[in-house]
Design a protein around this nucleic acid. Structure first.
Lengths: 152, 152
DNA sequence: AGTATTTATATCGTTCACGATGCAAATATA
DNA sequence: TATATTTGCATCGTGAACGATATAAATACT
């Protein structure tokens, strides 16, 4: 009768599950290089633009600095990047890839395609993906706005 | 040139972000009742069908028992449910809602609608949601299959 | 200049996720 | 019936996420 509480009707559960499972799909590809999925996301950001303060990385990933800081420290301990105090602004920590971090770009070059292929199916095709992206981007934009509003 | 590594091209990042943000949207609604989002998912499962072994709950949520067990223990400590050894099979722990757990169903009755409204936007409407569900279900089905295969 | 506020980052505590592993009960096989 | 395998759940260790809070540097204000 009242399907409000039905798990199968929940958008969030689908997003939560899809996110977990696709992260699991990345796992074998990343773990052989000692990386986790969130660490891979940091690399994507730094490959795009090297030498950024913690805050810019966090904003790009829509994460808090209290999530990103320990993550960066682990990556620093692995020799993937360096964290140095900013010169203009001594509060900032500038994050910069090491050679090892830059070399990972080549080593992981087939990851996007491999994972991309693994999600293609009847309803998810090169034709339908833009529509899916649009909906997810809209949801993200909406929620980012709402969540910020309710905090102040 | 080569957009393979562009964060904006990544499906997983969108799913990961959308999942996090929508979970954050649940937070104020759930935390006033002392619940987390994964705990709310357990309640959805038990409201659907009370008195289930740990394994059935884990399978329904597509989680491992080593994730679900501590979660259930915390909920037991809160007096939301009970865990009792199965009679037919002494290995099973049967999870059953307490009165408090059943009463939460009424107290949380407006949560699905509230969260549902908060994600509606131009491209996500009652008309387009079934298509979105279809794609997410396909992705989940695909990855569940793949991930199980690669383990054995 | 001196004080208040904001900003950038970090620390702490709690709760997931999950790989690896352990253990006891149930089941299959010899 | 004895032994091997499978199954259901739990424990342990690690790495996120994130709310709350702390701290120091930068900025605004008086």
């Amino acid at each position: 009768m009242d399907g409000r509480f039905n798990l199968d009707n929940q958008l969030c559960f689908r997003l939560y599950t899809a996110s977990r499972l696709i992260t699991q799909a990345y796992h074998p590809l990343l773990s052989q290089h000692g990386l986790t999925y969130p660490q891979y996301l940091v690399l994507l950001v730094l490959w795009e633009k090297d030498s950024q303060p913690v805050n810019d990385i966090a904003k790009r990933l829509m994460l808090e600095t209290n999530t990103v800081t320990p993550l960066l420290k682990r990556m620093e301990a692995e020799g993937i990047l360096t964290r140095t105090q900013g010169k203009k602004d001594a509060r900032q920590m500038i994050v910069k890839l090491t050679n090892k971090g830059q070399e990972l770009k080549e080593k992981l070059s087939d990851v996007p395609e491999t994972v991309g292929r693994s999600v293609l199916c009847e309803s998810v095709t090169p034709e339908t993906v833009p529509g899916l992206f649009r909906m997810l981007d809209d949801i993200i934009g909406q929620l980012k706005h709402d969540n910020n509003e309710s905090n102040g």
